[in-house]
Amino acid sequence: MILTVNGDQVEIPEAIETITELLQHFKLYDKVIIVEKNGEILEKAKHSESLISDKDSIELVHFVGGG
């Protein structure tokens, strides 16, 4: 499956079906993160039920503390 993630086209395994699994795939599960799918923000509670499909456009923004 091909997704656009933060502007880059990336191929991800077909076994990945939800946003939660995508975050695990990118090893982002321990970060506080905001996910936008096709222009819409997904609340955290919906990550595990939100399905991803080919050609979806995903923006991932994680919070960091340094300064």
Binding site: N6, G7, D8, I34, E36, I41, E59, L60, V61, H62
Partner: peptide, 18 residues
């Protein structure tokens, strides 16, 4: 707004609904 200069990424997302 967020960016990664090494990976050449930039995102601006509207978060009003949060």
């Amino acid at each position: 707004v967020s960016f990664d200069l090494w990976k050449n990424h930039q995102s601006t997302i509207k978060v009003d609904m949060l």
